[in-house]
Design a binder for these strands. Structure first.
Lengths: 265, 265
DNA sequence: TGAATAGTGTCTTTGAGACATTATAAG
DNA sequence: CTTATAATGTCTCAAAGACACTATTCA
């Protein structure tokens, strides 16, 4: 009997956020420290209840603003900024031991922020390398030498480590995989970059997110040859050392054709 | 304040199904006729409430069985059959005028069924060409000559036409687009085929779903050359007329590498 | 016989990958 | 000077697209 409004089981609906950025040559996710049981002391993805008359995407954008001060770019608007999209929904009956909670996870891609976590009512929000949070994180980059495993979780409030609370390990893994595959066939890598960036900085985004090394020359030829991907902004910069690099902005294209395929293992 | 279980707005959670198949050279979706207001007399996607202690995927599989008698293939199992995956979640505050309903839509790909809609407590379930349901349906195939628009909706109980009830037009459009893009980089086209099929039948699936004509010779070379996509089953058939065609089963591969890219317009 | 579909082969073009070379900065 | 990064060019190979040709059935 579809849509009988008289008798239905009540659910709580939340949004959880997988907020990813690239900082210090590592793919990082935003996590908050839980101060209440269950999973007290564990790290978790930011999130919260959807309000009475609030759209799902609006709830995700609101939570994002509360945790980071970021304003999201709704899909459709053109100005550069933070990217927000729905990821997936998680609703196993016992994923929260207290009650039936269905969580609509969203994926956020953001550039490295000058102020890591500004304001926010969750005071303990931190950026943490995905490799430290997930048992099977991204393969370490060319010069990365990450720690071995992920021993404790509840002890040290300083360095966020997995496993995360609830089913957030799986949500984070799904978000990371979504981000990795979206770099292949969309221009979303620019969401990790500041408004103006060089080809080398864009390449480092791909290398960090995919965990591989890319040929700088082929990469340059590929991205500058894809129409609508990059627009020269006129200036140059030397902030990376070496010969001054041309600065670009994100172009209007959203889909990459042909795609940028990940090298296989 | 994330996860405060004491005060939260209550939601109803449903699953809606986009069930797609290929019949009579057209991409078709399963729709049910609404017998109750709101949208009485309009066609809608099958769906229903998630039960008290039921997983989302289990609810989708249950609804699918109730509407079609089909058993779904959970992601992970290997035997051929119906494919089911989560599509997206729709939760605008006023998408259902009666109450706050969050719907977790699922996508089902099924082979053409001998009994179009067997059993089912929704007696009015029907297959309808997607082109008749959506204002911007798939481009008509090589020899298709579909009707022009979609005039009425409530009048004729025989031929399902859009617009669908609630926001199901958008859900269906999202499901169709997901199916189209999944044919590119996965082997899911075989989910539209019977257990044994020919290369020509598989090609017709691609042509109908994408709404384009494909070169039979290049298609043959491509799919038989992709390792793990097709496994010869030994037999041949002449059910299409002409020279007998080799029969295949779906191979173990799920991801197509390199992908089968859609021809551009 | 002709019409229809299946299957193989050939040629061309496009694009990815490997790698050489030059350009321009900092120390 | 050396070193680091940027940018362009060249060669090779893999794969897609266009299309000729043969094979096998049915009417």
């Amino acid at each position: 009997m579809p849509y009988d409004p008289s008798a239905f089981p009540p659910f709580a609906v939340t949004v959880d956020l997988v907020v990813l950025t690239v900082r210090r040559q590592a793919l990082c996710a935003l996590v908050v420290r839980r101060g209440e049981p269950p999973h007290r002391g564990r790290w978790a993805l930011p999130g919260g209840f959807v309000r009475e008359r609030e759209d799902l995407a609006a709830a995700a954008a609101r939570e994002l603003g509360e945790e980071t001060g970021l304003r999201s770019r709704e899909p459709g608007t053109e100005q550069p900024g933070v990217h927000l999209e729905q990821l997936a929904t998680y609703g196993e009956p016992d994923r929260d031991p207290r009650m039936r909670v269905v969580s609509v996870a969203h994926l956020v891609l953001a550039p490295d922020l000058p102020a890591p976590v500004a304001g926010g009512d969750a005071g303990s929000a931190r950026w943490a390398p995905v490799a430290d949070l997930l048992p099977t994180g991204p393969p370490p980059g060319p010069d990365a030498s990450e720690g071995a495993g992920r021993p404790g979780a509840v002890g040290d409030p300083g360095v966020p480590r997995g496993p995360l609370a609830f089913d957030h390990d799986r949500i984070l893994a799904d978000g990371v995989e979504r981000a990795r595959s979206k770099l292949e066939y969309s221009s979303l890598a620019t969401a990790f970059c500041p408004p103006e960036f060089t080809v080398g900085e864009l390449r480092r985004v791909y290398e960090v997110v995919w965990g591989v090394a890319l040929d700088p020359r082929n990469f340059h030829r590929k991205v500058t040859g894809t129409p609508g991907f990059l627009v020269p902004s006129g200036g140059t910069t030397t902030r990376q050392g070496g010969r001054p690099a041309q600065l670009f902005r994100a172009g209007g294209a959203t889909l990459l054709n042909p795609p940028m395929l990940r090298p296989e293992a």
